[in-house]
């Protein structure tokens, strides 16, 4: 089914390219080349896939517990801000101290920001969708302030408002030497992302806590009578979700930009929802979906340059994937009504 939705979306994209008078095959060829056509292009695709994977896990871990985390975007930015602040605040610290400190600060900050939505749901019954949407925009404006004329604003910065660069100790190293892939930006964040995928898998399917979270997501009342308090798990899982998103933000700072700037990583948190849905909230699925969406993003820019097809086509394709997935849920709902057990299709 995920493959069907991607194919349907690509088809819809092709129609749009045709309508606008270009050649879809040329367009898609350019896209493919841009995403995977050379070692450099592959590393560029992976650079985008890293934060997408982490943000996708953020959405998925909440989904598995029955919560819809629209807030990965805001949590990612909070993590980035925390990393940017920590990294710039103690520039003299050696990497062995500063890098973990940066990482932990981002995870805790993102987690705390996420936990607010969990707490409001558990204690006040507030729909987490509303809270996380509102939180996302709150972060954007706080970020404007911090970077334009607030405490994090870099002195004498020109151009885009930004924070001061982080210390050398907070930087994630490039893992592919220039001699092998010249100019590659692929950093050690990719290792952290793979580790996060493993942690996500281990947490959800190999620990008592993960069992409890899944039980709450699939049968909250059964979990409650067995002594698993769903409300506490909601707060906790939103902390974990925020932590993963915060880690994504930290990786963008420490691995790629070495500072925070206005308009930083826009839209990753929303793409993450599509990644989680397409990847069926599973570790491998999310990783593949993140690489796919990263390929769209990276390939899209090349497609625009080489074939003259706007890179925004990628958003159309992505939205269509989501719509087809929604339709898939409908097919399942209809099947259930006809008496097929839902579990048989899950």
């Amino acid at each position: 089914m995920p493959i069907v939705s991607v194919l349907a979306a690509l088809l819809a994209g092709a129609v749009l390219i045709l309508i606008s008078g270009s050649n879809p095959i040329r367009g898609y060829a350019a896209l493919l080349r841009g995403a995977f056509g050379s070692p450099y292009n592959i590393t560029e695709t992976l650079v985008i896939a890293v934060p997408l994977t982490l943000a996708g896990i953020s959405v998925a871990v909440a989904f598995r517990t029955g919560l819809f985390n629209i807030g990965a975007q805001g949590q990612l930015l909070v993590g980035a801000l925390a990393a940017g602040w920590t990294g710039a605040q103690f520039p003299e610290l050696p990497g062995i101290l500063l890098l973990p400190l940066t990482l932990v600060s981002a995870v805790l900050a993102g987690g705390a920001w996420g936990a607010i939505a969990g707490w409001l749901k558990a204690a006040r019954g507030v729909n987490e969708v509303i809270t996380t949407i509102m939180q996302n925009y709150t972060v954007v404006f706080v970020m404007h302030w911090l970077l334009q004329n607030g405490p994090m604003t870099a002195p004498n910065a020109a151009g885009t408002p930004a924070s001061s660069p982080i210390g050398a100790g907070a930087i994630l190293p490039i893992i592919i030497p220039n001699e092998i892939v010249p100019l590659s930006r692929l950093h050690a964040g990719v290792v952290l992302a793979i580790a996060a995928v493993v942690v996500f898998w281990f947490l959800m399917w190999r620990t008592s806590l993960g069992y409890e979270l899944r039980a709450v997501g699939l049968g909250a009342r059964a979990a409650a009578q067995a002594g698993i308090d769903p409300r506490r798990r909601m707060v906790l899982v939103m902390f974990i979700a925020g932590g993963f998103a915060g880690l994504a933000g930290m990786i963008q700072v420490s691995g790629l930009f070495h500072r925070v700037f206005d308009g930083f990583s826009a839209g990753f948190g929303f793409d993450a929802i599509a990644v989680a849905l397409l990847g069926k909230n599973s570790p491998v699925g999310i990783t593949l979906a993140a690489v796919l969406f990263a390929a769209f993003a990276r390939g899209g820019t090349i497609m625009q340059a080489d074939a003259g097809v706007s890179s925004h086509l990628v958003e159309v394709v992505e939205a269509t994937v989501l719509l087809v997935i929604a339709a898939e849920a409908i097919v399942r709902a209809l099947a259930v009504r006809r008496g097929t057990p839902a579990e048989a299709l899950a």
């Binding site: 008592s208 069992y211 409890e212 899944r214 039980a215 699939l218 049968g219 009342r221 059964a222 979990a223 009578q225 067995a226 002594g227 698993i228 839902a342 579990e343 899950a346």
Partner: peptide, 21 residues
């Protein structure tokens, strides 16, 4: 079906519900 079991879980996983820790 609603209170006693987590239906999409396996039999083994349902046996440990409440004893998972």
């Amino acid at each position: 079906r609603v209170e006693g079991l987590v239906l999409p879980f396996t039999v083994a996983d349902n046996f440990i519900l409440g004893k998972q820790d």
